Simulated assay, not measured.
Amino acid sequence: MRIVIVEDEALLALELECEVEAAGHQVVGQAMNSSAAISVIDTEQPDFAFVDIHLLDGPTGIDVGRHLAGRGIPFVFVTGNLKRIPSDFVGAIGAIEKPYTVNGLQNALAYISRLVEGEGKTAPPPSLVMASA
C-alpha cells in the first residue's frame, strides 16, 4: 500500500515510517499540520493514511480525516486520547492509541492491509479500536 503519515511528533513519524516500510508498504508522504497533510493527500493519492488528531496547527487531524473520507481513502487515527475522536469517527476505520507497542502496530497494520485490499474479514487485533465499537 501507498501510505501517508500525518503526525507532528518527528520521532513517532519516523518510527511509524520504519514499521510501515518493514511491513512491505511505501510511505509516500508525511505531514505535521493539516494544510501540508491535505496537500500530500491530494498530490500522492495514497491507499491509506495514519492520522494523529493533534497536529502542529491544533486538533486539526479530524479535518484531515474528513478530507480523507471525502476522497474515499481509508485511514485510522493514531492518538493519545481516544475521547477526542467524534463518535462517528469521521469515516475512519478505527484508531490506534498512543503509546502503542511495535507488536500492536504491526498487528494493526497487517489487519488494515487485509481490510484495504478487500481480503476476508477477520477479528481486529486488540491494538486497533474499531469505529463500529
Rank of each mutant, 00 (worst) to 15 (best):
I62A: 05
G94R: 05
T101F: 00
P86A: 01
V102A: 13
N107T: 02
V116Y: 05
R71Q: 15
T101P: 09
E117C: 04
L115C: 07
E117H: 07
G70K: 14
V102K: 15
G70N: 14
A95G: 12
E117K: 06
I62D: 07
T122H: 08
G72Q: 01
G118L: 00
N81L: 03
T60C: 08
N81D: 15
E97Y: 06
T79F: 13
R114A: 15
G70Q: 14
V116P: 02
Y100E: 04
N107G: 05
I96P: 07
G61H: 09
G65P: 11
G70Y: 04
I112K: 11
P74M: 01
K83H: 07
L128T: 08
I96A: 01
L109F: 07
G91K: 13
K83W: 06
N103T: 07
N107E: 13
V102H: 13
K98W: 00
P99L: 11
T60K: 12
S87N: 06
S127V: 08
T79C: 08
P86Q: 01
K83T: 12
A69T: 14
V78C: 11
L68E: 11
N81T: 13
L109K: 08
A110Y: 01
G120F: 00
R71H: 14
L128E: 03
K121M: 06
L128N: 02
T101L: 10
P126G: 03
F77G: 07
E97N: 02
